[in-house]
Each structure stands twice: as structure tokens, then as C-alpha cells.
Simulated scan of single mutants.
Amino acid sequence: MLRKALGNRLAPEAATFLDMLADDGVMEFPYSPPGLATRLEGKAAIAQHLEGLADMIAFDRMGEPVIHATADPDVTIVEFEGFGRGVTTGESYDQRYISVIRTHAGRIVHYRDYWNPLVVLRALRGSAVVDALCEGGSDHG
């Protein structure tokens, strides 16, 4: 999906996501709920995070990306969807993402990923936890 979205901004030999990353690449998750990473620095930290993610969410497929060009040729905005389920809960994981990706010299140097934290919590903790959180916040009379 990223190869399609970023095209010639990536080095031709970069086949996997980790291949696409610069060694000092950064990933940020501004809406990450407490207990989950908000910033990862370096390819090794990102690889470790992705390995842990596989134990939490089983992805079935990714949707077609919508690519938005920007005034900066090194920055691309990509909208896409991910579908799967929480590994321990079996809860559905139907997530929409907006990613702001900066590339340099054929590699991703910065990847800022925006997504709905409630979808993550539902997949990881279950519907009852998310429903209780949402109901608890509705007493603003």
C-alpha cells in the first residue's frame, strides 16, 4: 500500500515497511491512548513496536489508499483503512488512518499516524470497556 502511495519517493529496492524506513526514522501516534507508544525513534524501535503490534491486532487487509500531494515534494498525506480483529478479544478492528509521511533520499524519515483511539481500545480491551468510558463522559448536563 505504501509503495503504491509513495511511488518513486521510495528507493526501488525498499520492499518491506522496514526497508522503506531510514535508520533514524521517526514514527508518531498523536492520538495513542495511555499505555501505547506515542513516539518511536529509529528503525530498531519501530521494528520492535511492529512485532508487539502483531500480538495485539491481527490485520486482515488494508483498503485502497487515497494520496494527497502537498506543496512540499517530500511530504505525502495518505488516507487508508485497516481491517482486522483484536487478538485477545476477537473484537473487530475497522480503523481509518490519515498518515503524514516525509521522505528523504528514498526512505521514510518521519511518519505521523492519526487514527481513532476508541477503535484501538475496543479491539484491545473489548466493547464493554469502551462503552463504559463513553457513557461515563455523557453526564455533562
Rank of each mutant, 00 (worst) to 15 (best):
L2S: 00
R3M: 01
K4Q: 11
A5F: 05
A5L: 05
G7T: 05
N8I: 01
N8A: 14
N8Y: 00
L10N: 09
A11Y: 05
T16G: 10
F17V: 05
F17L: 13
L18H: 13
M20R: 11
D24P: 08
D24Y: 05
G25A: 15
E28S: 13
P30E: 06
Y31W: 06
S32L: 05
S32N: 06
P33M: 10
P34K: 13
P34D: 15
G35N: 12
G35R: 10
L36N: 02
L40D: 04
L40Y: 04
E41P: 00
E41Q: 15
G42C: 09
G42W: 05
A44H: 04
A44F: 00
I46K: 09
Q48G: 08
H49Y: 15
A54G: 08
D55G: 07
M56K: 15
V66T: 11
V66A: 02
I67F: 07
T70Q: 09
P73L: 10
V75Q: 05
V78E: 00
V78N: 03
E79Y: 01
E79N: 10
F80N: 03
F80A: 10
F83D: 04
F83G: 03
F83Q: 11
G84K: 10
G84M: 10
R85A: 14
G86Q: 09
V87W: 06
T89F: 11
G90R: 10
Y93S: 13
R96I: 08
Y97N: 00
I98G: 00
I101W: 07
I101S: 10
I101M: 10
I101E: 05
R102S: 08
T103S: 15
G106F: 07
I108F: 08
V109E: 09
Y111R: 02
Y111T: 02
R112T: 11
W115I: 00
P117Q: 10
V120Y: 08
L121G: 05
L121C: 08
S127G: 13
D131C: 06
L133D: 03
C134H: 02
C134W: 01
E135C: 00
G136F: 13
S138P: 01
S138R: 15
